[in-house]
Every structure is written in C-alpha cells, then in structure tokens.
Simulated scan of single mutants.
Amino acid sequence: MTSHTLEYLPPVKPSAIALGTLFNHAANIAVLAPVFGDTYRRAQQADSKEEFIKSREAASAASLYGSTLVGSGIQTYAIAAILNHANVLSYKGAAYLGGLLFAATAVPQAVSQVFLDRRPAELVAVKVAANLVDTVGLSLFLTWWGTRPAHDLLR
C-alpha cells in the first residue's frame, strides 16, 4: 500500500484558512504601510498611470503584496494544522502554542538583529510586535473562529 504525503497534512476548515489569511495579511500590510505609502506618493508624482505601472516601484510593491498574501495563507494553514494536531481548543492553549511558535521563529531573529546586526531598537520592536500578531494573535484568532472541518467535529 502506498501512502501519499497529503494524507499526513491535517485537515483545516477552509473558512479558517480564508479568514486567518486576511487577518495575517492585514497585520503584515499594517507593518509594511510605510513602504506602500512611499509607493503611493511616487505614483501620484508620476506623469501618468502608465509610467508608474511600468516602474520598478510598482513591480516591487505588487510583488511584495502578492508574496505577503501567499505567505499569510501558508502560515495560517500551518498554525491551524498545528492547533488541530495538538488538539488545542482553549484560548490559553492557543496563547501558549503561539508563544512557542514566536519563540522558535522570531526570538532568534530579534536577538540577531539587536546584537549582531545592531539594528535600531525601534525597528526590531516593530518586527517583534508584528511577529507576535503573526503567531500568538493568529493562534488566538483561529481558536476563536475554529479550525476543525465539520466532518472532524462529528467524531
């Protein structure tokens, strides 16, 4: 009997993926707002819409926006799948799990940025806050909405 990799991926309620993606994408866009604000100002200063659309700024902004949306969807599925696999049903459990994800993904990066890269504290603080929303906030949001497909609830 052959097994397929997809059999190992936990099912997640599609609406949880959609809403979690929007939640996570909105949080990322809020952090990236200064980048998009600069792009918008350049668009206003361009001689024509066609000139701006052909510019590097427009291509860069579109690429950033698209990759953020795709990344938000992937991250949402991953966190929802972990919540389901760990059988997390409470906000306390979601906060703990989100905290562990934050510690595993964002803390090493923040420490490196502060001590090795010597980035400004304000920049690191904004990234840490965004990562807290991406992990703890998304875990709590998904727990509030529910991540289990209907067929799993009947078991």
Results as ranks from 00 to 15, higher is better:
Tyr91Thr: 07
Val107Asn: 09
Thr143Ile: 07
Ser15Thr: 14
Met1Gln: 08
Leu19Gly: 00
Lys127Gly: 14
Asp134Lys: 05
Val124Leu: 04
Ala27Thr: 06
Pro11Thr: 04
Val12His: 00
Pro10Tyr: 06
Arg41Asp: 15
Thr105Trp: 09
Ile53His: 10
Ala150Cys: 14
Ala129Trp: 09
Ala129Asp: 07
Phe141Cys: 02
Val12Met: 00
Leu153Tyr: 10
Leu154Trp: 12
Asp38Glu: 15
Ala59Gln: 15
Pro120Cys: 09
Ile79Arg: 01
Val107Pro: 07
Leu22Ser: 02
Ala80Lys: 02
Leu138Tyr: 01
Val126Asn: 14
Ser139Lys: 04
Ala78Gln: 03
Leu142Thr: 04
Val136Asn: 09
Ala150Phe: 14
Asp117Phe: 13
Trp145Lys: 11
Gln113Leu: 15
Ser15Asp: 12
Ser55Glu: 03
Leu138Pro: 01
Tyr8Thr: 08
Arg118Pro: 12
Thr5Gln: 06
Tyr8Trp: 13
Ala30Trp: 06
Val128Leu: 11
Thr76Asp: 00
Gln44Glu: 09
Ala94Tyr: 03
Leu6Phe: 07
Asn24Ser: 08
Ala27Pro: 06
Trp145Arg: 12
Thr76Cys: 01
Thr5Glu: 10
Lys49Ser: 01
Pro14Glu: 01
Ala58Asp: 08
Thr135Val: 06
Ile82Leu: 12
Ala86Tyr: 15
Lys92Ser: 12
Ile29Trp: 06
Met1Phe: 07
Trp145His: 11
Ile29Phe: 09
Asn87Ala: 12
Ala125Lys: 06
Asn24Tyr: 04
Ser63Thr: 09
Gly137Thr: 05
Leu19Val: 00
Ala106Thr: 04
Ser55Ala: 03
His85Asn: 15
Leu97Tyr: 05
Asp152Ser: 14
Asn87His: 15
Ala95Glu: 06
Phe52Ala: 04
Val136Tyr: 08
Leu123Ser: 15
Ala104Lys: 12
Phe115Arg: 10
Ile82Pro: 08
Ile17Val: 12
Leu138Lys: 01
Ala43Cys: 13
His25Cys: 07
Gly99Phe: 10
Thr135Gly: 07
Ile74Leu: 02
Gly37Cys: 07
Thr2His: 05
Asp38Thr: 13
Val133His: 06
Ala80Met: 07
Ile74Gly: 00
Glu50Cys: 02
Asn28Asp: 13
Phe115Ile: 09
Ala27Glu: 04
Ser63Cys: 09
Gly93Phe: 04
Trp144Ile: 12
Ala43Glu: 11
Ala125Tyr: 10
Gly73His: 02
Gly20Asn: 01
Leu138Glu: 00
Thr39Val: 13
Ser67Lys: 13
Phe36Cys: 10
Leu9Ile: 06
Ala61Lys: 04
Val70Asp: 11
Pro149Thr: 05
Phe102Thr: 13
Thr39Ala: 12
Pro11Trp: 03
Leu6Thr: 09
Asp152Leu: 14
Leu138Asp: 01
Leu153Asp: 14
Tyr65Val: 09
Ile79Met: 03
Arg118Val: 12
Leu132Gln: 09
Gly146Ala: 05
Ala18Asn: 03
Ala61Asn: 05
Val107Met: 11
Val133Glu: 08
Glu7Ala: 10
Arg56Ala: 13
His151Pro: 08
Ser72Met: 06
Thr147Cys: 02
His25Trp: 11
Val114Tyr: 11
Tyr40Asn: 10
Ser48Phe: 00
Tyr77Cys: 00
Leu83Gln: 05
Val128Asn: 11
His25Asp: 07
Gln75Pro: 05
Val124Ala: 08
Thr147Gly: 03
Ala103Cys: 15
Gly93Asp: 05
Phe141Thr: 00
Ala130Met: 15
Val126Ile: 14
Asp152Arg: 14
